[in-house]
Design a protein around this nucleic acid. Structure first.
Lengths: 255, 255
DNA sequence: TGAATAGTGTCTATAAGACAATATCCC
DNA sequence: GGGATATTGTCTTATAGACACTATTCA
């Protein structure tokens, strides 16, 4: 609308076209977003799931999600889905992949754009609803490295949790993506409080990768990367020599 | 339908729900796929674009694409779009990203799942339509490394080509993705014939990365990777000592 | 034979892993 | 002081880049 440089005739042609265009001539699929909210507690990766009270997949557990509003951006839809379930926003949020198998939802054709969010468990505790319809499940990864595939979800009693639709695959892809990303992007910070020790960060990396890392070179590499700053502060009350607290110089998108 | 273990009552509830579910209660966006068909010729990255003969963006150039059929998988839709424009299939094809800015298409809300395809230019020549509505544009990347952002498209006369919608951004993301992927995945092979020399492969890498690479270590790394096999054959008629031809042990998806 | 690029061998610089020694806190 | 982990330093090993030399084809 603002500053078109087209000649009047050309513009009229486009306007006329738009006025007569009929978007509903063909059946359109439904479009949703699903968000894998990931956190890490005591060396274990966890994800937020909600118990479905309605069909389809009633009684199974699913990722928070919802349909995309007709004038809403995908990221806003993801952010909204997250806010309505946790009451909070401002997490690291990034698009993962779009799942569109024609039969992935028995209702009708639903194409879903999957997002993943990362959050410090302490922050999550403050906002998470405490009820029987919400839980954090542990992600058990039945493959090594970046092979990929569905994960298994386990509740706090160690019992397997049934996930709805293709959500076990979505979570599997999240883990694969996180593992790949760790090679070049400092996403581990997103799962920690603002100030953290190098050891805490290393545990996050090991949790995501599912294997231990060399302490010396981890330390050296991080310090050399220039991505973190020493705060001069030390951790307290740890029963041993306290480590220095570092802070990440963040740049990541946040919604 | 096949082997449901649910109790009859439960199953009836789900069936009844599905029967009464009304998918058209809310307005649905249109969903399309767009495919960036990428090739590399003489150290230059190129993409296939088509001249738009209809509104919107009439006269501009766009990536081959189309709406997703209501029972069609996303990958099939991408493959179909490619086939209708090139007459061929069987290229490396992978999902890139989903673009959903509410105003990205002036007609109506269109969410597009972008794919990229890689193909050997010799193979492309055999199938590509030769007309004024089809061209391969050179991709000029105005940023270094994996910074990202839109690219510029230039025709064979060196003149800038206007791309429709957000297709310059899509192509920018393709380049960024290719650069990132080259660090761990052997995608360079997809832009070469079946048998190729190490030097040809190195030029592909340099073309994608936009910078030169060390010959010695490139050679060493590739040979050590175990991903390529020497064929014992040599290239011919090259005006200098011929190099040995190698073959890639492929595993990649192909549609 | 000369031009041009392929392919090999060696040296150096850099980063990762292993290991040991010392430092500092809480109890 | 003793337990526990942080932090520093050194040595070894693997990998990348630089460079020099030899090999092979075509014109």
């Amino acid at each position: 609308m603002a500053k078109k440089k087209s000649k009047p005739g050309k513009q009229n042609a486009e306007q006329e076209f738009l006025a007569t265009y009929d978007a509903s001539r063909y059946p359109h699929p439904s479009v949703s977003v699903d968000v894998a909210l990931i956190t890490a507690v005591d060396g274990v990766l966890k994800a937020l799931v909600l118990r479905r009270e309605k069909q389809p997949a009633k009684g199974k557990w699913s990722l928070p999600g919802g349909f995309v509003g007709i004038h809403e951006s995908l990221e806003d839809a993801a952010s909204r889905a997250l806010k309505s379930k946790t009451g909070a926003q401002g997490f690291f949020l990034e698009q993962l992949f779009t799942f569109g198998r024609p039969d992935r939802d028995p209702r009708t054709r639903v194409i879903t754009i999957a997002y993943y969010a990362l959050v410090d468990p302490a922050k999550l505790d403050q906002v998470l609803r405490q009820d029987a319809l919400t839980q954090l499940v542990e992600l058990v990864v039945p493959w090594d490295g970046e092979k990929g595939g569905a994960i298994e979800a386990v509740d706090s009693f160690g019992k397997k949790v049934k996930l709805a639709f293709d959500h076990a695959e979505i979570l599997g892809l999240v883990v694969k993506r996180l593992r790949g990303k760790l090679n070049y992007a400092p996403i581990g910070f997103e799962l920690l409080p603002d100030k953290f020790t190098l050891r805490q960060l290393q545990i996050i990396h090991e949790t995501i990768l599912g294997k231990t890392k060399n302490k010396d070179s981890f330390r050296r590499r991080l310090l050399a990367s220039g991505l973190i700053t020493a705060t001069g502060e030390l951790e307290t009350a740890v029963g041993h020599r306290p480590a220095e607290l570092y802070r990440f110089k963040r740049k990541a998108t946040r919604k």
